[in-house]
Design a protein around this nucleic acid. Structure first.
Lengths: 228, 228
DNA sequence: GAAAAATTGTACTGTTCGGTTAAATTGATT
DNA sequence: AATCAATTTAACCGAACAGTACAATTTTTC
């Protein structure tokens, strides 16, 4: 504690870069591109402002790096999910629940995407990497849907892209607009209990959209015995 | 053209205020609170920068006025819709379609709400008027739902607030995230034809969420003869 | 171990930007 | 028509802010 290397410093470029990105992610997510302050980022970093410009060029370069890292982290997290081992209906439920929770837990990502949309996607457009990352997301939905349709449990005629849109949209909106919606219509949709209730309804909405037959009585406690 | 009143100006406070608000709405919607430039607003106004401060105090005061006007315009537009004269199912379809189109057409409103959410609703919180405006929106949904449930066409157990959330969420998200989503998954969801297709699916999703029985075959052209 | 390349710290700069000063013009009041 | 408050103009200001100059220190190369 008392004696860090005094007047001597070690070089560790990767750690410095990572440290800058960590702080910058927080600041850009908090304040957007225009609202973020380079001095503020520098102050909260272990290094100096000069380093930020050395590694990232300028403010926009830093923002782009932050955005890429955020998408990378988000999509990599999704890979954990093993859907193929579940029957289609259960897999879809799991996917929706995961999407909903994952978006909720990654507020920084949400706010960065909001910021990017305010800029009409201008910075995301420059990144080939981000587009590559997302191609797989839609594939997963397509596979799941095809599997369910083949088994007759999902109805025909659904566009997997729109299904993905539906799931992402509801998951994203719940978090992105929680401030204004909560203020206008009550915070009870956004506390712990409310969140679980909304999640359940999102699952319900998606399942009813996809299932060949509307889900049977889900009221009451246990599973309803179907035919065994 | 050649001879506006030279060196003579007329006083018209209301017109000046309205002119400032019009330009400011555009600028705040374009760039957000931090990104908007007072000089830019002033330049595009018929009046001067000093006038903005005279009427609205400071940048935040102007932003608050813009936000209030935007919500007012949005909610007032909704009053046109006469749902009571339609049977519940048709009324709900009309409501969803209206919501979807209305959000799409009001990009400035969407972007102002996005901006406000970036600020955690801090400015909306100061406005009693905005909250009052929105109370009626949820009432309309509640009445419609009650009517449909009474007739047995809507299922039991739906929270009107969550139904409103569902409709708003999908309508809002379609516009708010069109840039990033279109970039990642293709613009075809957002051109003229794509928009109509998505709208149809949003209606479909909401109806399946609400209806007591899943909607019959809607394929083919005209109305299916039901029982007459 | 000397030279070259990469990395870091300190101090500074030019500009942009929100906001203001001070005075002038206009319309209402008497 | 003199007076006064409301409204408008043009020029200006200080702080905040993105970005830089330049030297110092560390690591790599030969």
């Amino acid at each position: 504690m008392a004696e860090q290397q005094r007047n001597k410093w070690k070089q560790d470029p990767e750690a410095v870069r990572a440290d800058i990105l960590r702080v910058a992610t927080d600041e850009f997510a908090r304040a957007g591109l225009a609202g973020a302050r380079m001095d503020e980022i520098a102050a909260r970093t272990r290094t100096s402002k000069r380093m930020i410009y050395y590694y990232f060029g300028d403010k926009e370069g830093l923002y782009r790096a932050v955005l890429e890292q955020a998408y990378r982290g988000m999509r990599l997290g999704e890979q954990e999910l093993a859907l193929d081992s579940l029957p289609p209906e259960k897999a879809l439920r799991a996917l929706v629940i995961y999407s909903f929770d994952h978006h909720w837990e990654n507020g920084d990502f949400i706010r960065l995407v909001m910021t990017e949309n305010m800029h009409e996607g201008a910075y995301m457009e420059m990144s080939d990497e981000i587009r590559a990352l997302n191609a797989s997301a839609i594939d997963r939905v397509r596979q799941l849907y095809d599997r369910g349709r083949a088994g007759g449990v999902f109805r025909d005629g659904i566009d997997p892209l729109k299904l993905h849109w539906l799931i992402s949209g509801l998951s994203f909106f719940y978090r992105s607009n929680s401030a204004t919606f909560g203020l206008l219509f009550g915070q009870e949709l956004f506390d712990e209990a409310g969140r679980e209730a909304v999640r359940q309804e999102v699952v319900e909405a998606v399942m009813r959209y996809v299932l060949a037959r509307s889900p049977g009585a889900e009221r009451g406690a246990g599973e309803a015995p179907s035919s065994h």
